[in-house]
Design a protein around this nucleic acid. Structure first.
Lengths: 226, 226
DNA sequence: CGACATGTTGAGATGGATCAACACTTGTGG
DNA sequence: CCACAAGTGTTGATCCATCTCAACATGTCG
């Protein structure tokens, strides 16, 4: 979506810098929040929460254009971590400038709210998946969902996308064990529904996948960029 | 939290009216969004999503002071329903006035973003619960969580709260079957951890419940009211 | 009184967890 | 160059938490 020049200027001034986090590194730690807001420029990351005995749940995946950090800002202590999956480039904003942004550029505040609401919508979807879909449906859901998101931001090339997740990531996102995740993915692959090789994902039968997942395309909407 | 008089005035003008929905009624339907935003004045409700074969997942419970409708506003079609549990009183805002609100009263826009982010934080918690906690832990979590929320808004009286949920609601919130939910709650009750009678919930051993759920109090934060 | 929603309990079935190997790749140091 | 450790993916065997099916109890409301 287009941004007005003066807004862009303010964003430039607002941001406190860019930053790069290597694959596997922590963008923010689960315990202590660091007072920052981020926009993801490139690479993959994920938000997660974990229990004290180590069980971990991935809340959602972050792709280029995604905005994060608001929950940290507003929810008291109950917080989440963010970890890079591939090398990641970030635009960093100081959190305490947020109010100034709302006051001086309400349109940007509106966009940020938009992005936050969209993020919540994605977590809603994941909660439905984890709460009510079985393992096969969950896996199909994940593949469809990620492919569509990448496709929508123009990162699908020749019917396949970069796919840097390992099976542990997938298991933690779907609320399944690692072993069962492996067996489930394997089954889908042997049914010829998808192909996962050399870090790229190709959907061989998207129609079947969306039917299994009971997950149908919704009309795309323009997304603002902050 | 205090609201400035002129803000209050704008809110009064902004809202398109109050509304009442009887217990069991739909506030908004899952399929068609109705272009409205709500603040819950009194009563209990819940947001949910369901699969086409009827499996249903409750995303979160809505209590007095909660604000809803943003996800509808921003996410394309993928939407949720809202249903009243007890009789519910609502303050209704027209959705298309939202931009005007951001522009003219950035502080209110900021508050709304706050509330939206807080809502997302709650869904994050539920996703961790459903994805990684077992049945006993989930039930303990739900009881603690709801008790604390009611307590924080001053609706706990004499160590107990109103509790209008039936076991089907609890099952749909926890991602469990109805039967297993019943057995799990029964076990907790027989261990003397809580008491559930005449539509009221009393926590007899909150320390044990929070230990089971691995869910500890976070420092409360002031919440804006819109 | 019967119809209906809700809660309770038992028996049996099963999807997914856990445990245990093993294969393959990559990077590291000797 | 090889030896080795570490990370990742794969597969089989077994276990158990939860689901499903089925029955019955209770209360409410017409």
């Amino acid at each position: 979506m287009p941004v007005k020049p003066d807004e862009l200027e303010f964003i430039e001034a607002f941001r406190s810098g860019a930053s790069v986090v290597p694959a596997g590194g922590a963008v923010i730690y689960e315990q202590k929040s660091n007072g920052k807001l981020f926009t993801l420029y490139s690479g993959w990351a994920f938000r997660y929460k974990s229990l004290s005995d180590g069980r971990r749940q991935i809340l959602n995946f972050l792709l280029p254009g995604d905005f994060v950090g608001l929950q940290q800002e507003f929810s008291g202590g109950a917080t989440h971590g963010i970890e890079a999956i591939s090398d990641v480039a970030l635009c960093v904003f100081p959190r305490d400038g947020l109010w100034k942004l709302f006051r001086e550029y309400p349109s940007l505040g509106y966009d940020i709210t938009w992005l936050a609401a969209r993020g919540e919508g994605m977590v809603d979807d994941n909660l439905l998946t984890v709460g009510r879909r079985n393992a096969t449906e969950r896996a199909a859901m994940l593949l469809m969902h990620l492919y569509r998101r990448l496709d929508r931001i123009g990162l699908a090339e020749g019917g396949s996308i970069e796919f840097p997740l390992n099976q542990q990531h997938i298991a933690d996102a779907l609320g399944l064990s690692l072993v069962h995740t492996n067996k489930t993915l394997r089954r889908l692959q042997q049914l010829g529904l998808h192909e996962l090789r050399n870090g790229r994902l190709r959907l061989l039968n998207p129609r079947a996948l969306q039917r299994i997942a009971d997950y149908y395309e919704t009309p795309p909407k323009e997304v603002p960029l902050v």
